[in-house]
Design a binder for these strands. Structure first.
Lengths: 204, 204
DNA sequence: GTCTATATCTTGATAGAC
DNA sequence: GTCTATCAAGATATAGAC
C-alpha cells in the first residue's frame, strides 16, 4: 500500500505538456517542477536518471495513451477509408483545440533527439512502431495483405505527423484537412493494390 | 566590391548543420562559432539580433535552396506520379547519406518554435508555403485543377516530412520508401478527382 | 572587421537538513 | 519523502581593446 504517487504523476504530466509546446531541450527541470507545483528535489528523487529518464517516461506514457486512442478510432468492421479520413478530421479539431500546440506528444522530441540521445531515440522509435503496428493490424484485419497493411499504416502515420507540422507552422488546420483527403487516397490505393496482388481487397 | 563575406557565411552554414542535427534550442552560439571557426564576437557583429536572427536567416536560406531543388525535380512535362515517387526514393537515399540527420533543414526548428518564437514560426511557415506553392504550380501545370493541386502539394510535402521523422527515429529508410508508394497513390487519386470534378486530368 | 573578456542568467545535478 | 541551498557548466549577450 503506497502512500504517495501523486507528485510523481504531476511531474510527468507537466513535462508532457511542456515538451509538447516547447520541445525537450528548451524545457528545464526547474520549469517542470514549478509547473507541477512540486519541490525541485522531488524531480531527482523520482527520476534519479535525471531529465533523460523523465523524457523516456513521458514518451512511453503518452505513447501508450495514443495507442489506446488508435484502438478506439479504428474498430474492425468500420470501412478503412472512412475510418482513416475521419481520424484526420478529428485530429484537425484537436489541433485547433490545443491552440496549435503539438497534438502529437512525441513528435518534437523525436526530431530533437534522433541524432543525439540514443536512449530517447529508441523510445520514440518504439512508440512509433507500436502505433504503426496497431494501425497495420486493423488494416490487415480489414482485408489488406500484411505487407501492404504495414506500409499503409506507416505512411498514414507519417502523413499525420507531417500535416501537424505544417499546420502548426501556419497556425491553420488546412494542411490536416488536406491530408484527410490524401489519407483516403492512400488507403484506397492500398485496397486496390491489395486486391490485385494478394487477395481479399473487399472491406465493407 | 566587398572584401569580406566569408565568415558570415561560414556561421550560417555551421548553424544550418547543427540545427539539423540537434535542433534550435540545443545548439548554442558558442558551438556554432566554434564549428564555423569564427571568433565569438563575429556572431553578434553579423547578427545583432542574436540567435533568433541567425535562426531566421538559416531557415530562409535553406528554405530557398530546397525551393530550387523542387524546381529541378519537378519539371513540367514529366509524369506527375512518377516524378513524385522518384523524389521520395531520392529522399530516402539522402536520409541514409546524412546518416539519419534531418534531410529537411527546417523541420526540427519548425516544431520547436511553433508555439514559442513567433518570428521564427512565421519564417518556417513562409518556407513551407513556398515549397507547397512551387509543387502546386507544377501539379497545376500538369493538369490538376488549382485547388486540387494545392491540396495535393500540401499533403505530399507533409507526407515527406512525416516519413523523415519516422525514418530518423527508426534509423531506417523504410518509412520513406513506404511513403514513396503512398505519395504515388495520393497523386493518382488527385488526378482522378481532378478529371472527374474539374477538367484536364490527363498528365502524360 | 577581429577577437577576448566579462556580465548575467539559467541549466542539470547534488548534498544534506528536516 | 520534502524542500532548500549550492555547485559547476553552460547559455545569451555586451563591452571594449586591437
Amino acid at each position: 500500500m503506497r502512500t504517495t504517487g501523486d507528485t510523481r504523476q504531476r511531474i510527468v504530466s507537466a513535462a508532457t505538456e511542456l515538451f509538447r509546446r516547447q520541445g525537450y531541450s528548451a524545457t528545464g527541470m526547474k520549469q517542470i517542477v514549478a509547473t507541477a507545483g512540486a519541490p525541485y528535489g522531488s524531480a531527482y528523487h523520482f527520476f534519479p536518471g535525471g531529465k533523460a529518464q523523465l523524457g523516456e517516461e513521458v514518451v512511453r506514457t503518452s505513447g501508450a495513451a495514443y495507442l489506446e486512442l488508435i484502438g478506439e478510432l479504428f474498430v474492425p468492421g468500420r470501412d478503412l477509408v472512412d475510418a482513416t479520413g475521419e481520424a484526420f478530421l478529428g485530429a484537425a479539431g484537436t489541433l485547433r483545440e490545443l491552440d496549435f500546440a503539438d497534438p502529437c506528444p512525441i513528435a518534437t522530441v523525436a526530431l530533437e533527439v534522433a541524432s543525439t540521445h540514443e536512449g530517447l531515440r529508441l523510445a520514440t522509435a518504439e512508440v512509433f512502431d507500436s502505433w504503426t503496428a496497431a494501425l497495420a493490424a486493423y488494416y490487415a484485419a480489414s482485408g489488406l495483405p500484411e505487407g501492404v497493411a504495414r506500409e499503409t499504416a506507416v505512411s498514414v502515420i507519417a502523413l499525420l505527423e507531417g500535416a501537424f507540422m505544417l499546420g502548426r507552422a501556419a497556425r491553420d488546420t488546412g494542411p490536416v484537412e488536406a491530408a484527410a483527403k490524401a489519407a483516403r487516397w492512400i488507403v484506397r490505393g492500398a485496397v486496390l493494390s491489395g486486391s490485385a496482388e494478394g487477395g481479399a481487397g473487399r472491406s465493407a
